[in-house]
Design a protein around this nucleic acid. Structure first.
Length: 941
DNA sequence: CGGGTCACGTA
DNA sequence: CGTACGTGACCCGC
C-alpha cells in the first residue's frame, strides 16, 4: 500500500431516475401533495435523499443524469426494452420536471442527452471525472452501473434503507458476484434484468453465470464454447444465444458522449435563494424543510463563515511515511513509537485491594503527550468485526497499513505486546474487536479518548470520533483551558475528498489531538485512576462478553413466539368484535377514537401533545370502571391482554432476529459511554430489558441457555446495592445496623419506622417501607409515594417524616448531595465519576426540580455502577486465574450471568460471588445472591 | 425514508 | 409530580 498525501476532488454522479423512483415509492403519495393535487413526494424525497448523500460524502462536484423522453438506440435493438419502466405512474412523471427545476434553483447541474439514457450520461461523466483525476461516486440503484467500478469509481448502491448505501468497489463486486466489475455486464447479459424487462437464459442466475465466466473468461468465450456446456442449463444457453448477445450490446454503457459540459462546470453550492423560495412555496414545503435543504445545498456559498467553524486548530497534519515491508514498519516503530512507561505498573492494575484504593498514579498528561496513536478503520460490531485499515501516528509522523496483512503481523504483535502501554486510541473496546478480527491481540492501552470524553462530560451524547472532535476540540471545555495554541492551523475536517488511507491518517491525527486535549483535563480532575483501573479494564471484559455472546435455544424462542402470536391474534379478534369494526390496536390514535369517541368513555389523562393517553394504567382504570359484560369492558379486557402478549411477541421476535447464524448466539453491544450516571447500556439487541416482572414475560428467559460445552447458567445479583451505598455514604448507624443484622431488610426497617417488633410487621407495612426506601434514591416526592402506594398525601408525608426520624443521617446526606452539587456544579461517585447539573440554578422550577432529583440519584446509581464494573473485572480475572472456562456473558446493572462449564459449577459460583461481594469495602456488607440452572429463568433465585 | 411520539420492557 | 436506559409501531412530512 502506498499512502499518498495528495488529495483528489470527489465527483458525485447521480442517477436521477433511479433516485426519483426510489423516493416516489418510499414516501406515501397521500401525505405529499399540494392543495391543488400536485404530488410532491418524489420531489421531497429526491431532494432530502440527495442532501443526505451530499452531506455525508461532501463531493466537490455534482452532476445529476436524467433520461430523455422518447426512445434511445436501445429500443431499436430490443423492442420490449424497459417495457416495465415506461409504465411509470403519471404521478411520478409529473414530478420529474419539478425535480429538475428544484435542482436548477439549488444550483445543482443536471444533464440529459437525446437518444441516450441517463446511464450513458452517468458512464460518460464518470469516465470524464476519472480522466480529470477525480475520485468518482456514482449514486444509482441500477446494477448496470457496476460495470463502471474500478479503483477510482465507486457505486453507492442503496440497500433496504436508503441510508445504508453500500459502497460498491471492485472488492465488493467480486465478493457479491464472483466476477470483476468489468465482467459484470457479461454476467448480467446471461442472467437478464427483470426490472428492465430483459430476459436472460432461463434457469441461469448469478451463480451459474459467474461459474461460466470464471471457467471461460468472458461472455465471448462462453458463446464460443457453448456446445461444450452440458445439462439443461447448457441447452438453455444455446437456445438463447441471440438474446444474450443482444443483452450484452444493450447493457454496455456509452462512455464518450458529448455532453457539452466539463467536470469543472459541475461545481455546486450557489443556490438561488429567491428562486428556491418561490419554487418551494409552490410545492408547499414547510419552513423547516426549506431551510434544511437550502442549508445543505448552500454549504459552499457561505463557506467563509461555516468552514472556519468546523476547522480544528489542535490537529497536527502528519508527515506520512511510506511502508514497503515489515522491516520498514519495524524500523519506523523503533524510531517513533516510545516504549511503555517502565515505572507504571500498566493499566490492568490489581483491584484486589480496592479497599485501600487511594487513586494513585493520577498523572497521565505527560505520558499521553509522548504517546503514540493507533486508529483502526473497520467494523466493530460483535460478530461481524473487521479491520480494513489502520494508521499509527507518533509525533508528527504517520504510517498507514492493512492490519490484516500477514507480512506485518509479527511486527504488530511485538508492538502491541510491548508498547500498547504508551498508546492512545478512540474506543478501546471497538479497537479490540477490530484488532482481533485482524488476528491481533492488544493487552492494554494508556488512554482512550472516547472513555476520557465520557468521564469529562457524561451527558454529552455521541461517541463517534467526529462528534467528540467537534465537542471537545471545537468548543472549550466548561470555560477551562484557554486552549494553548497548538501552533498549527491544521487542516479542514470537511475535506472528504481523500482516499481511505488519507482519511485513516487524518482520523489518527484527530485522536492524537483529542488525547492531548483530554488528558490534562482528566488529570486535573483526578480521574485517571477511574479511567485506567475501572473503565479500560471494563472495556476489555465487555469485549469478551460481546464476542462470546449469549447462547439461546432457538426452538424454545420459536415456541414462545408462536404462543404469544396466537394469544395476541385471539385477543385482537375479540377486541375487534367488541369494537364492531377492524382497527389497529397498536395505534394509540385509532384506539383513542374507538374508546373516547365511538364508545364514549371518559378519558382520564392527556399526553404531552394533547391527545388522550391509552397507556396501561389508563386502560386498567377504564376497565375497572366499565360495566361488567359491556362492549367496552370486553374490548378493554382484550386490549389489555393484547398489549401484553403482543409486546412479548415483539420482544421474542427481535431476539430471534438477532441470533447470529454463525454460532446461534446473540451478540449484544454494551455501550460504555452512553448513560449519564456511569451505567452500561445494551443495544442491538437490548439484553438488559428482558421481561422479569410477571410469569408470562419471564418465560422468555428460559430461551437463554448455556452454549455447547457448558452445562448451566449462573445468575448472581446484588441485593439492595443502592440502599447499601446510601447507608455507607450517609454513615447512618441505624441503617448500617439494619444491613449488618442480616435480617430481612425491609421488615427490619419497617419495625424501626413503625416501632413494632420485627415479627409483628405486616406485609402492608413492609411494602410501604420498601417503596419508601427505593423511592429515596430517586428523589421521590410524597405525592409520588402516595400515588404509588394508593394512600393519601398526608399518610405519605407521615411515612416520610417517620422514616427520616429513624434514619436522620440519610436525610442529611441526601440534602448534602444536592447542596454540594449546587455549589460545585457536579456530583461525584465513590470513585470520582462526575456528572454536571447546570439546571440546579435554573429559574425554571420544573427543570430545577428535575436537576435536584438527578443530583440525588446520580452519585448513588453511579456508585453502584462503579462497583459492578469493579466486580466484573474481578470476576473475569478470577475465572481466568483459576484457569476455568466458565465465563461472564451478560450484565444487567446489578446482576451477572455466567456460562458454567461442566465440573466448574461450584468453583465458578464461589469465585464470582466473592468477586462481587468484595469489589469494594463498605461500612455494610455487600450481599450477593446466586442461583444456578439450565436456563436463565431457572437460574433465578 | 427519517424523525418524533407513544407505550413499555429492565434495573 | 422518582432515576437511568432501548426498541418497536405508528404517523407525519406537503
Amino acid at each position: 500500500m502506498d499512502p499518498s498525501t495528495t488529495t483528489r476532488p470527489t465527483l458525485l454522479v447521480v442517477d436521477g431516475h433511479s433516485l426519483a423512483f426510489r423516493a416516489f415509492y418510499a414516501l406515501p403519495v397521500d401525505n405529499f401533495s399540494t392543495e391543488d393535487g400536485q404530488a410532491t413526494n418524489a420531489v421531497y424525497g429526491f431532494l432530502t435523499m440527495l442532501s443526505q448523500v451530499i452531506e455525508t460524502e461532501k463531493p466537490d462536484r455534482v452532476g445529476i443524469a436524467f433520461d430523455v423522453k422518447g426512445g434511445t438506440f436501445r429500443n431499436e435493438l430490443l423492442a420490449q426494452y424497459k417495457g416495465t419502466r415506461e409504465a411509470a405512474p403519471e404521478e411520478l412523471l409529473s414530478q420529474l420536471p419539478l425535480i429538475q427545476q428544484a435542482l436548477t434553483a439549488l444550483g445543482v447541474r443536471w444533464i440529459e442527452k437525446t437518444g441516450y439514457e441517463g446511464d450513458d450520461v452517468i458512464a460518460t461523466l464518470a469516465t470524464m471525472g476519472e480522466r480529470d483525476g477525480c475520485r468518482v461516486l456514482v449514486l444509482s440503484g441500477d446494477r448496470d452501473a457496476f460495470q463502471l467500478i474500478d479503483d477510482d469509481v465507486t457505486v453507492l448502491y442503496p440497500g433496504y434503507h436508503f441510508k445504508d448505501l453500500k459502497h460498491m468497489d471492485p472488492a465488493a463486486v467480486e465478493a457479491k458476484y464472483h466476477v470483476t466489475p468489468r465482467q459484470y455486464p457479461d454476467l448480467a447479459a446471461l442472467r437478464g434484468e427483470t426490472s428492465d424487462n430483459i430476459p436472460g437464459v432461463p434457469g441461469v442466475g448469478d451463480g451459474f453465470a459467474a461459474k461460466w465466466i470464471n471457467q471461460y473468461g468472458s461472455l465471448d468465450a462462453i458463446i464460443e464454447h457453448a456446445d461444450e456446456i452440458g445439462g439443461k442449463k447448457g441447452e438453455a444457453l444455446r437456445e438463447n444465444l441471440d438474446q444474450v448477445r443482444l443483452n450484452r450490446r444493450v447493457n454496455t454503457l456509452v462512455r464518450d458522449l458529448d455532453l457539452g459540459v466539463t467536470i469543472d462546470d459541475l461545481g455546486y453550492g450557489h443556490a438561488d435563494a429567491d428562486l428556491t423560495e418561490r419554487l418551494f412555496g409552490e410545492l408547499q414545503f414547510g419552513e423547516r424543510t426549506r431551510t434544511k435543504l437550502l442549508a445543505s445545498f448552500n454549504t459552499a456559498t457561505d463557506a467563509s463563515g461555516r468552514q472556519e467553524e468546523s476547522s480544528i486548530p489542535a490537529i497536527v497534519e502528519p508527515l506520512v511515511d511510506t511502508l514497503t515491508d515489515a522491516a520498514s514498519l519495524s524500523m519506523w516503530i523503533e524510531q517513533y513509537c516510545p516504549p511503555a512507561d517502565a515505572t507504571g505498573d500498566g493499566p490492568d492494575r490489581s483491584l484486589d485491594v480496592i479497599a485501600e484504593y487511594d487513586r494513585q498514579g493520577m498523572q497521565c498528561a505527560d505520558a499521553v503527550r509522548r504517546s503514540w496513536t493507533l486508529y483502526v478503520d473497520g467494523d466493530a460490531k460483535p460478530g461481524h468485526a473487521a479491520a480494513r485499515m489502520a494508521a499509527i501516528m507518533a509525533g508528527a509522523h504517520a504510517v498507514v497499513f492493512d492490519p490484516a496483512d500477514p507480512r506485518y503481523h509479527d511486527t504488530l504483535r511485538a508492538l502491541l505486546d510491548t508498547r500498547a502501554g504508551s498508546m492512545s486510541v478512540h474506543g478501546f473496546k471497538e479497537s479490540l474487536h477490530m484488532l482481533t478480527a485482524a488476528g491481533l491481540r492488544c493487552p492494554s492501552v494508556l488512554f482512550d479518548t472516547n472513555l476520557a470524553g465520557y468521564l469529562i462530560d457524561p451527558d454529552f451524547q455521541g461517541g463517534s470520533l467526529e462528534e467528540c472532535a467537534a465537542h471537545f476540540l471545537d468548543i472549550h471545555i466548561d470555560g477551562h483551558a484557554e486552549g494553548p495554541s497548538q501552533g498549527t492551523l491544521g487542516f479542514e475536517d470537511d475535506d472528504q475528498d481523500e482516499d481511505p488511507a488519507q482519511r485513516c491518517i487524518d482520523h489518527a491525527a484527530v485522536v492524537a489531538a483529542l488525547a492531548r486535549r483530554l488528558a490534562p483535563e482528566i488529570e486535573r480532575r483526578e480521574q485517571y485512576p477511574l479511567l485506567r483501573d475501572i473503565e479500560l479494564p471494563t472495556s476489555r471484559v465487555l469485549f469478551h462478553m460481546e464476542r462470546i455472546g449469549a447462547s439461546v435455544d432457538r426452538a424454545r424462542l420459536d415456541e414462545l413466539h408462536a404462543q404469544f402470536a396466537d394469544e395476541s391474534a385471539r385477543m385482537e379478534a375479540i377486541a375487534e368484535r367488541a369494537a364492531g369494526r377492524s382497527l389497529n390496536l397498536q395505534s394509540p390514535k385509532q384506539l383513542g377514537v374507538v374508546l373516547f369517541e365511538e364508545m364514549g368513555l371518559t378519558p382520564t389523562k392527556k399526553t404531552r401533545k394533547g391527545s388522550y393517553t391509552t397507556n396501561a394504567a389508563a386502560l386498567q382504570m377504564l376497565y375497572a370502571t366499565s360495566e361488567e359484560g359491556s362492549k367496552a369492558n370486553e374490548f378493554l379486557g382484550a386490549l389489555l391482554r393484547h398489549r401484553e402478549t403482543n409486546k412479548l411477541k415483539q420482544i421474542v421476535e427481535t431476539l430471534i432476529d438477532a441470533i447470529d447464524p454463525k454460532d446461534g448466539r446473540i451478540h449484544t453491544t454494551f455501550t460504555q459511554t452512553v448513560t449519564a450516571t456511569g451505567r452500561l447500556s445494551s443495544v442491538d439487541p437490548n439484553l438488559q430489558n428482558i421481561p422479569n416482572r410477571n410469569a408470562a414475560g419471564r418465560e422468555i428467559r428460559s430461551g437463554f441457555v448455556p452454549g455447547d460445552g457448558f452445562v448451566d447458567l449462573l445468575s448472581a445479583d446484588y441485593s439492595q446495592v443502592e440502599l447499601r451505598i446510601m447507608a455507607d455514604l450517609s454513615g447512618d448507624e441505624a441503617l448500617i445496623e439494619a444491613f449488618r443484622s442480616g435480617a430481612d431488610f425491609h421488615r427490619y426497617v419497617a419495625s424501626l419506622v413503625f416501632g413494632v417488633p420485627v415479627d409483628e410487621v405486616t406485609p402492608d407495612e413492609r411494602g410501604r417501607v420498601k417503596a419508601m426506601s427505593y423511592g429515596l434514591a430517586y428523589g421521590l416526592s410524597t405525592y409520588g409515594l402516595s400515588k404509588q402506594l394508593g394512600i393519601s398525601n398526608g399518610e405519605a408525608t407521615t411515612l416520610r417524616d417517620r422514616y427520616f426520624e429513624t434514619f436522620g443521617k440519610v436525610h442529611d446526606y441526601l440534602e448534602s448531595l444536592v447542596a454540594n452539587a449546587r455549589r460545585t456544579g457536579y456530583t461525584e461517585t465513590i470513585f470520582g465519576r462526575r456528572r454536571y447539573f447546570p439546571d440546579l440554578n435554573s429559574p425554571n422550577r420544573q427543570r430545577r426540580d428535575a436537576a435536584e432529583r438527578g443530583a440525588l440519584n446520580a452519585p448513588i446509581q453511579g456508585s453502584a455502577a462503579d462497583i459492578m464494573k469493579i466486580a466484573m473485572i474481578r470476576a473475569d480475572r478470577a475465572l481466568r486465574d483459576a484457569k476455568l472456562v466458565s465465563r461472564v456473558v451478560l450484565q444487567i446493572h446489578d446482576e451477572l450471568v455466567v456460562e458454567l462449564a461442566a465440573g466448574e459449577v461450584e468453583e465458578a459460583t464461589a469465585l464470582v460471588k466473592d468477586a462481587m461481594e468484595h469489589a469494594v469495602d463498605l461500612a455494610v456488607p455487600l450481599d450477593v445472591s446466586t442461583g444456578v440452572g439450565v436456563d436463565w429463568q431457572r437460574a433465578a433465585h
